[in-house]
């Protein structure tokens, strides 16, 4: 059990952080991959599939993070977030829209009066290679524009060099700058090289006060994978057991089909438990996934296979 005294003790110096993080049990790579692969074979059909599809839709952070994003595109995406399938009112809304900071105000306006949140990436996304002052300013900008959630990137260079204290302090500082906004910490697992590092980075982000841990920016391959998400789900489960605080998980990038999404939901249920099967605690960062979920949903309700011609291009 990690009480507050023990937690502040861990955070007190880089040496104690390193001692703690390197004291975490190592990840059995083969075991984690085999476990994820086994769970991925679960067959989810008929009513369970219907439930899973609706749940997955309600967990989506509908994302557009391109240099070519325009206010018009963001407004279109917001309209889609509110009514994913205009021909069917029973489709749930997505959890949030995820955009660059300069488009937060546009999204906020388009989503005014709805429950759909606006998430903004910040802190020099996607590489995070700016000074702390710039990162804090970036975060404050996004929050001032109305962002409900901030997706920050960690300094992978510092993490890989072993400067855990620097990474920790940065997350704390951004958390402060974000104020009441929910803080999602992007670990960019594709750059962390090992599952052990993923586990350590997850704990580091949670110790520093992150509300969510997120796999990737979507700009680096590989992005979210099942074994990486498994390791992160184990981390949030163990963290809640140790501290009593629940932290959410968000795989992002590379999740394109309903089948993929359902695999993640199975993984959540079997690893962290159904407390996490909720948009408040689990999100899917995706853009093209939504259309596939809608097509599968239409297949279930109408009995005929749907075609992409009947869904928006975005």
């Amino acid at each position: 059990m990690l009480d507050d005294a023990r937690l502040s003790d861990i955070a007190s110096s880089e040496a104690s952080l390193r001692r703690f993080l390197h004291g975490l049990p190592g990840v059995d790579q083969t075991g984690a991959e085999a476990r994820a692969a086994t769970l991925a074979t679960r067959s989810i059909k008929t009513t369970a599939k219907q439930y899973a599809i609706d749940l997955a839709i309600s967990m989506i952070d509908l994302t557009t993070l391109e240099g070519q994003d325009t206010p018009g595109k963001v407004r279109a995406l917001c309209a889609k977030a509110l009514r994913p399938d205009p021909s069917d009112r029973t489709v749930p809304q997505v959890a949030a829209i995820c955009v660059y900071p300069d488009l937060v105000a546009t999204a906020k306006e388009a989503l005014a009066g709805s429950d759909v949140k606006v998430a903004s990436v910040a802190t020099g996304f996607p590489s995070g290679r700016t000074s702390l002052a710039v990162k804090e300013a970036d975060t404050r900008d996004a929050v001032a524009a109305g962002a409900d959630e901030v997706d920050m990137v960690i300094d992978r260079g510092a993490f890989l060099a072993g400067h855990y204290g620097a990474v920790f302090d940065e997350i704390v500082a951004v958390k402060q700058a974000a104020g009441d906004a929910h803080l999602k910490v992007i670990l960019e697992t594709g750059e962390l090289a090992t599952y052990d590092n993923v586990r350590r980075a997850s704990w580091l982000a949670m110790l520093a006060g992150g509300d969510f841990i997120k796999t990737s920016t979507g700009k680096v391959a590989p992005a979210a994978t099942l074994p990486v998400t498994l390791v992160m789900l184990e981390a949030v489960r163990d963290f809640r057991e140790a501290t009593g605080r629940q932290v959410g998980v968000k795989p992002a990038g590379g999740i394109r089909t309903s089948k993929d999404a359902i695999k993640y939901l199975v993984l959540v249920n079997e690893t962290a438990g159904d407390d996490w099967l909720d948009p408040d605690w689990f999100r899917l960062g995706a853009s093209s996934l939504l259309n596939d979920l809608l097509m599968q949903r239409q297949k279930l309700t109408t009995g005929r296979y749907a075609g992409p011609d009947y869904f928006t291009l975005d």
Partner: peptide, 9 residues
């Protein structure tokens, strides 16, 4: 019947 009803055909 599947092919005849398929929206992408």
């Amino acid at each position: 019947p599947i092919l005849a009803a398929h929206m992408d055909v």
